[in-house]
Write a protein that binds this DNA or RNA. Structure first.
Lengths: 124, 124
DNA sequence: CTCTTATTGTAACGATGTTGCAATATTAAT
DNA sequence: ATTAATATTGCAACATCGTTACAATAAGAG
């Protein structure tokens, strides 16, 4: 069960690292790495998630984005959100902490916070 | 282009109203109303959204939930979240306001806030 | 170099949601 | 009540995203 170092893992991780705080969808990674099969990409991404190397977020239109966020080098448990700019289309992992006040008796295991709007680059 | 009153609309709206603050997936509505075609259900739900009668939220596993939230009789623009209990599986529309502080230059158009955890009913 | 087995590619599947089109049903007009 | 216009429906077929099964390949330990 010991993990192995492979070309696909190296290439996919590189893609995500180059994207920085911006997330990538599986199909974007696929188009950037035409040598690797779709299935391989999905499996490698899942193994990264299992290892806690990357994180995955569901977008408001039902597609997953994967992040090797630069700001998240150390594993972080805080409640941050992801921002999709409706103009440039980029999806950014934001470091702002979200304050969540659940009613009495509710406990939180996991969050998925998504915001769509206009980023500062596209705002004129 | 004038909308018509139909049996499917009546039945689907009733389903959602009975669910109260809890959301339903299309496939759940489908199983509750076996007389209507899948496609009809999707189209009716979309027309309700267009009319602003219901709202739709993406879950963290990529499926949409539809709400005719009792607390949202009047259209509301505040940033609320939805809570899925990992024990009972219910998805609840919460009225708590989420405080969002976006960086300078970012503007918000839309939000999708999802929290998974344990609800007060299931907490012992 | 050899062996074990983690990883890959192919193919095929599954779940969710959408589109085209002819048939049906609702509503307004007569 | 009849009729006409057209919104709505059901069927079939498609599209996308992600998963599973299984045989072939390749990483890395000895």
């Amino acid at each position: 069960m010991k993990k192995r170092q492979t070309k696909s893992k190296k290439a996919i991780l590189e893609c995500l690292q180059k994207a920085g705080n911006y997330g990538l969808r599986a199909d974007i990674i696929e188009s950037q790495l035409p040598n690797f099969d779709r299935v391989t990409i999905y499996r490698v991404l899942q193994s990264f998630i299992d290892d806690g190397i990357i994180h995955k977020v569901i977008s408001d239109n039902g597609k997953f984005y994967y992040f090797k966020c630069l700001k998240c080098e150390e594993v972080h448990y805080h409640h941050h959100y992801h921002f999709k700019c409706s103009i440039c289309g980029k999806v950014e992992c934001m470091e702002d902490e979200m304050e969540v006040k659940t009613p009495l008796g509710y406990s939180i295991e996991n969050v998925n916070f998504w915001i769509t709007g206009v980023c500062s680059n596209c705002k004129k």
